[in-house]
């Protein structure tokens, strides 16, 4: 089903680095919310990944495989 994409974690952008650890995606640590959003926006423009807000100071970027 090409219509139902499978999201794969691509990157993590956070201001609270103690809330994330390990895994397959690189973690970008930002000083404040503004920088976090700037990094996330740049990453999404470059990689076509989708930004999601986890509401705990962390943004995740996912890429749809086969979407």
């Amino acid at each position: 089903m090409a219509d139902a994409p499978t999201p794969v974690m691509f990157a993590i952008v956070t201001t609270r680095k103690e809330s994330v650890s390990g895994g397959m995606a690189p973690i970008f640590i930002a000083e404040d919310d503004q920088e976090r959003e700037r990094i996330a926006m740049w990453l999404t423009r470059i990689t076509n990944a989708i930004v999601h807000d986890l509401h705990n100071g962390t943004l995740i970027l996912t890429v749809n495989q086969g979407g």
């Binding site: 926006m41 930004v51 999601h52 943004l59």
Partner: peptide, 20 residues
């Protein structure tokens, strides 16, 4: 909703993580 969840009427569509 909750600042980032895009809704159309009562239907949740997706999560938009960026403010712009």
């Amino acid at each position: 909703d909750k600042g980032t969840l895009l809704y159309v009427g009562e239907v949740m569509m997706m999560e938009v993580g960026l403010p712009h």
